[in-house]
Write a protein that binds this DNA or RNA. Structure first.
Lengths: 256, 256
DNA sequence: GCCATGATTTCCGTTCAGTGGAAAGTTGTG
DNA sequence: CACAACTTTCCACTGAACGGAAATCATGGC
């Protein structure tokens, strides 16, 4: 915050303004934005006017600003993940149809599991994670899978500071290392209330069809669970294979 | 030179660059962007570097640019529609579960039907419209509903130039006007191959719970159809009611 | 290997768009 | 009606953005 030695480009200011918006701040007033983006009010005001004119932001009835449709359109185009969403969704729905449970699809994003699609349970089901959410790798089913089947360097990094989230979270590096080896061996991961009390999950990796590169992971989360969640593993494996086979030729997950 | 009298702000240039990306141009090289955005190469290059640094764009292995994760995140936050998506999705899934058909949810966007959510059929089902797509109002089920239940001014505007899309598209203003009156009367709309040959649909309006403002429309599209699609209408009505009731207090669709 | 072709990156002097303090306008509250 | 909080407009100064041009990098034809 307070003064980096970075460049003060208009672009960076625009970035700062857009960065003021997040899941908990979707409607912001001029002064809030000016505050959060650390910009003089007059400057923020002008940039906001320009962004609004361009459709990046929209003005609500009460004068607050919100993310505009233009950004939504652009977001839909976003990179690889959009292809994945397209491809994976029907398979996730198949899994949901045959199990009735909430199904998630996540990919690796730096050192978090990025949830890119979800097929939720019935209208009443409580939502644990929604698309776009980033959750820790060591405390989620999909996260453990992503860790287990990706490179050693990431894995070791993630084992450094495993944050405790519930009383059941695995936080000792040794314990986690063994857990991941086990996941690799048996081909799927489990969690029991490691992220949220009352939530259990299983997850399997999604690999490309041809060469077997890790693409992401799909998992089932439920609240009423015990270890017979394992019975879902075959269904998940079928879906994962299906997704892998349907992937465009060489759209592997290239990360710098 | 090339003087428009408009503002040549950095923001507008950024807009131009982002505008160079669309569904058919998701990976662009520097020179393509410079071309499409009508900016000098050096300028485009600098702005691209800034946008990339800010995470708005990402650089692919082959040097081309693509929409970055930052934009995707922002897009997910987008305005009213995001609330609608959240609220509607479970109901759409209920409809899908009980019918097995592809379910769509669309809202009015200027003079097009903007599809904001879809629950597709099985993996093999061919996709007619994906989230973010804009389709004509007069040739889709949801579109007819949106037209029928919204203001006269929009309706008359849409009746001006109804584009012919298939041999079955209704293009005579008089015919359409009668069709819309009929839709209003019976409470749902049908289409038969008016947008795409081999595609049939029914759709119903989604109104807010309290006062009855039009929010959007949900519909079912199928390829193997005849008019017994009507049997789905009750299910759709139930879902529409459910969505209406679940809407946040006063999040009606405010458009300028 | 060597030069032609085309794209990308860097450079840098000029200038004009961006800046932001301050003042004016608006809305709401007691 | 005075006061406070927020938004919008104004405008003189200045340094960031601009873009032509040159350097560098990538291909590929012979």
């Amino acid at each position: 915050m307070a003064g980096r030695s970075n460049g003060i480009t208009v672009t960076s200011r625009v970035l700062a303004i857009l960065g003021a918006f997040d899941a908990h701040h979707r409607h912001l007033s001029l002064s809030e934005i000016s505050e959060r983006a650390d910009l003089p009010i007059a400057t923020a005001h002008r940039l906001l006017a320009e962004l609004t004119a361009g459709g990046m932001l929209e003005r609500d009835a009460d004068g607050t600003y919100e993310i505009g449709r233009r950004l939504w359109d652009l977001g839909l185009l976003a990179s690889v993940e959009q292809d994945l969403r397209e491809v994976a969704l029907p398979f996730l729905q198949d899994v949901h149809a045959s199990t009735g449970e909430t199904v998630h699809f996540a990919v690796l994003d730096d050192d978090a599991a990025l949830y890119i699609e979800r097929v939720a349970g019935r209208a009443s089901a409580r939502v644990l994670s929604k698309p776009g959410a980033r959750l820790p790798l060591h405390a989620t089913g999909v996260g453990k899978v992503l860790l287990a089947f990706s490179g050693r360097s990431l894995r070791e990094r993630a084992l450094q500071s495993p944050q405790r989230l519930t009383a059941h979270t695995m936080t000792e590096p040794g314990r986690l290392r063994r857990e991941l080896a086990e996941v690799r061996r048996r081909g799927f991961a489990r969690t029991s209330e490691e992220l949220t009390l009352g939530a259990f999950s299983v997850a399997v990796p999604v690999m490309t069809g041809e060469d077997s590169d890790l693409v992401g992971a799909i998992g089932i989360v439920t609240g009423t669970a015990r270890k017979d969640l394992d019975r879902y593993v075959p269904v998940l494996h079928v879906a994962a294979k299906g997704i892998g086979r349907s992937l465009p030729p060489r759209a592997s997950t290239e990360r710098k």
